[in-house]
């Protein structure tokens, strides 16, 4: 921003005749547009949050309440205690957790091979992994459903875990490979001179160095598996096996008419961990992808 200011000043002194609106005026215009944009863009999130804190009777009013007059935590309490929330939360944690552990371990090995070794067919493998990532959802969903049905894996943790490993693995390999590639070869060569074998180098030197990459890749994997809906919806038939996204979509407090306050409280509960993760890795998200995008 400061560079921008000096630049404008410089230009003004160089060519005072050039017709230009004053800087301040332009900044005010931009700020007004930005405020309007921010209000519109944040509104759905704002509306979700305040609805979640409203009394049931304050939700469906002819004139909407833009600020909750009698805020309450009751919707959150009912969402957690009167539905199968805890069971479904446990399912989500088991499925997403195990899928991530498997996927990350396998991806760690594969990406080490694809970055620290040269061999025939490596490029082909990388392109195939990238291509797999772009398959439309139903193309994998239909055959996986049929095969798992045949193998009796539907409505069980293991079926969904396998499907999530398959969904998360390709991009995890690509992502981790990016971290491996940045480790200088010299580190490896020094260890080799000291007589370390391939496995020692991998476990003692390379793997510890990619831990930051492993963490950020896991967060991305977590977000996509945590949010996944249609596979879980198709595979899991019992309420007791639902994961949280299905719980959210079919949210209803037993014996009560559908209420939006409860639904919004459920949405907040579900979205919260993801939004927090996004805020944490925000800087990382933008800097990483911009560099990639510019080059691509």
């Amino acid at each position: 921003m400061s560079a921008n200011v000096t630049e404008t000043e410089l230009v003004t002194t160089l060519s005072p005749a050039a017709p230009r609106r004053p800087k301040r005026k332009r900044r005010v215009g931009a700020t007004i547009i930005a405020i309007v944009f921010s209000l519109i863009w944040v509104f759905p999130v704002y509306w979700m949050v305040i609805t979640a804190f409203k009394q049931r009777s304050d939700v469906m009013t002819p004139t909407p309440q833009f600020i909750p007059l009698n805020p309450t935590l009751q919707n959150f309490v009912s969402a957690v205690t009167q539905t199968s929330f805890l069971v479904n939360l446990r399912n989500s944690i088991i499925v997403v957790g195990l899928a991530l552990v498997f996927a990350m371990l396998i991806a760690l090995f594969a990406s080490a091979a694809l970055s620290r070794f040269r061999f025939k067919g490596r490029r082909t493998i990388m392109v195939l992994i990238l291509a797999v990532q772009m398959l439309p959802g139903t193309a994998l969903l239909i055959p996986q459903f049929l095969i798992f049905n045949e193998l009796n894996l539907l409505n069980k943790y293991i079926g969904l875990i396998l499907a999530y490993v398959a969904a998360v693995l390709p991009f995890s390999i690509w992502s981790l490979r990016g971290f491996f590639v940045t480790i200088p070869v010299e580190v490896e060569e020094a260890a080799k001179v000291d007589g370390a074998g391939t496995w020692t180098i991998l476990w003692k030197i390379l793997f510890p160095l990619v831990v930051p990459g492993l963490i950020s890749t896991s967060i991305f994997g977590f977000i996509s598996a945590w949010n996944e809906y249609i596979l879980a919806y198709t595979f899991m038939k019992d309420t007791a096996m639902y994961t949280l996204p299905i719980w959210l979509v079919s949210f209803q407090i037993p014996g009560q008419p559908p209420d939006f306050a409860g639904q919004m409280a459920a949405s907040v509960l579900f979205a919260l961990p993801v939004v927090i993760f996004f805020l944490i890795i925000q800087r990382h998200l933008v800097s990483g992808m911009s560099a990639g995008a510019v080059k691509g």
Partner: peptide, 10 residues
């Protein structure tokens, strides 16, 4: 996924 892939590229 693509973000991460892009990062690798960078």
């Amino acid at each position: 996924a693509a973000i991460v892939a892009g990062e690798g590229v960078a």
